[in-house]
Simulated assay, not measured.
Amino acid sequence: MKHIVLLTLPLFLAACGPSYGMKVPGSLVKKLPFEVRIELLEAENELALAVDKVDENNNEIDRARDNIRRARSRQEAAEDEVDRATDEVSREVAKLAIEESEARVEYLRAKQRLSVGLRDVSELARNCAFAKFELAKLTAARKAKVEGSEELDPKEFEEQVAECDAEVKEELADLSEDQKEEKTAREAWEAKKTALAKKTFDARASPYVENL
């Protein structure tokens, strides 16, 4: 049976200072019967997934940074190739390679901006999952009639969840422009990449074309 870590993950998040950090005292959670703790697994798993999502988005930002660095290097190499071209065909390929690399950089920058925004939303969503976990703990404590749980108002914990969820929706809506810019930049890059591939024997494995 999967082990329960009802204390370690919330303590980790508390150290991060979540915006929605109203908590159920640990002393109440410790008094929960084992069969009641089992009921908290779903909320706990959602919290763990939310923490993982933040890590994934941070990794995506790091990958975008590395890809931008590589794309700039490719752009510089393509610019050097124009000067070394000995015929018109080679010169045209080099120019197309410059256009493709420029479009790639613009796309990656747009993607990075979107990734940063999504990372911020995922951090907020993580805090919402934390709030939902705390609400689940309070619900369980009151169900088990744990002494002291009656002093906590479930409505306050419910409002904390509702406010956090509403903020997530608002922040996601604010990312609509970044999503449009990322889509437009990606399509522009795909067009330049296709043109370059066609000029170099129309091969998907063209040495001039690198897929992300």
Rank of each mutant, 00 (worst) to 15 (best):
V5G: 15
V5H: 15
L6Y: 01
L6V: 02
L9N: 07
L11H: 13
F12N: 13
L13A: 08
A15T: 11
G17P: 05
P18W: 00
Y20C: 00
Y20P: 02
P25H: 00
V29L: 07
K30I: 06
E39L: 08
E39H: 06
L41P: 02
L41I: 12
E42R: 11
A43K: 03
A43F: 01
L47A: 03
L47F: 00
A48G: 03
A48L: 05
D52R: 11
N57K: 11
N59L: 13
E60V: 09
E60C: 06
I61D: 04
I61A: 02
A64Y: 09
A64T: 04
A64K: 10
I68G: 02
I68W: 03
R69G: 09
R70G: 07
R70L: 14
A71K: 01
R72W: 02
S73P: 01
R74H: 07
A78W: 00
E81M: 09
D87F: 06
D87S: 11
E88T: 11
V89P: 06
R91C: 04
R91Y: 03
E92Y: 09
A94T: 04
K95F: 11
L96N: 09
A97S: 15
I98P: 03
E99Y: 13
E100R: 10
E100C: 11
E106Q: 15
L108M: 06
R109W: 04
R109E: 15
K111E: 13
K111L: 15
Q112W: 05
S115C: 01
G117F: 05
R119L: 05
D120I: 07
D120G: 05
D120K: 10
D120L: 08
V121W: 01
A125T: 05
R126V: 04
R126Y: 01
A129K: 01
A129P: 06
F133H: 08
L135W: 03
A136Y: 00
K137E: 10
L138H: 03
T139G: 07
T139S: 13
T139K: 13
T139W: 00
V146W: 03
E151R: 11
E151G: 10
D153W: 04
D153H: 01
K155P: 01
E158N: 08
E159P: 02
Q160N: 07
Q160H: 02
C164K: 01
D165V: 08
D165R: 06
V168L: 05
E170L: 15
E171P: 00
E171F: 09
L172K: 08
D178G: 05
D178C: 02
E181N: 12
A185M: 03
R186T: 06
A188N: 15
W189K: 05
W189V: 07
E190S: 12
E190H: 10
A191P: 02
A191G: 10
K193Y: 06
T194C: 07
L196R: 04
K198R: 14
T200S: 14
F201V: 10
D202L: 09
A203Q: 14
Y208N: 12
V209E: 01
N211R: 14
L212P: 00
